[in-house]
Amino acid sequence: MSLITPDGGLLFWMVLIFGIVFFILAKWGFPVITGMVRKRTAHIQDSLKMARDAENRLGNLAQEQARMIEEARAEQTRILKEAAASRDLLIEEAKAQARDEASRLLEKAKTEIAAEKESAMRDIRKQVALLSVGITEKVLRKDLSETDPQLELLRKLSDEIAAKGLDRNLRN
């Protein structure tokens, strides 16, 4: 058999068999495999992209978190500062009020003392008058003869009484 002359029978079978096998494999063989692998490749690429996105987002999240913590801290200091300020203000106000109250009370006490003093003086004067009237009565009831030593004694007595009454009054 010649090597370089194609044989008709073999040609016929080759076309037939190769054609049939090609038809079957092109329909149910290769497209299934390549299709699935292409699908899987696309899926893997998508997954990788998604993973990258998620990583980015996670990075952003950490940044966001840090930012929020920073903000919270700033807020905290602000609030603390405000609280301190308002506390100082309150104390200051309370102090002022207390000062006012104290001075008002002092004033009141002073006026009351003055009034008390006045009434005491008035009392003393009344007592002195009564005493003097009593003394006078007693003196008059006694002998009014000895004028000069009598008068001397009277003066002494009235002085003593006045001093004692004033002393008691003041002690009260």
Binding site: L25, F30, V32
Partner: peptide, 13 residues
């Protein structure tokens, strides 16, 4: 060849 490829395709199915 038919067997090889169809069996492979069957795995993917």
């Amino acid at each position: 060849l038919l067997l090889l490829i169809l069996l492979t395709a069957r795995w993917y199915k």
